[in-house]
Design a protein around this nucleic acid. Sequence first.
DNA 1: GTTCTCACA
DNA 2: TGTGAGGA
Length: 133
Amino acid sequence: MSEERLFTISDLARDFDITLRTIRFYEEQGLIEPQREGRQRLFTHRDRARLKLILRGKRIGLALSEIREILDLYELARDEASQSLKLLQLLSERKKQLEEQRNDIDAVLSEIVVLEGHCRQVIDTMTGKDATN
DNA sequence: GTTCTCACA
DNA sequence: TGTGAGGA
């Protein structure tokens, strides 16, 4: 009783609230390979599940190329262990990346505070002492 | 309605 | 990492 229910690109776009262009773009990037009936794309429940995983990966901040790696591991090896290992590795890289970004932001914030101090000093000097104008 | 290609940010 | 235009 396996329902061979197929989805059109519009079905998936509506269900996941993304554009048709985005889905075609993911296909172009090799993240999904829908069947064709003539020219038209037809998506299986499996493609649907993949799309869900793609969007989840994106939310975490993974690059499409990284998401493709994970998806490929599942297709080729059907090895959930290595797939999870890969995901763990990518998550660790992503965390490191975010922490570096946070450090950069903190540094810029500190610089702003210093500059603000300098600006106030200049203003105090000009207004409190000597208006050269 | 869906597809494709090219340009563009 | 996508979007918009324009035609088929």
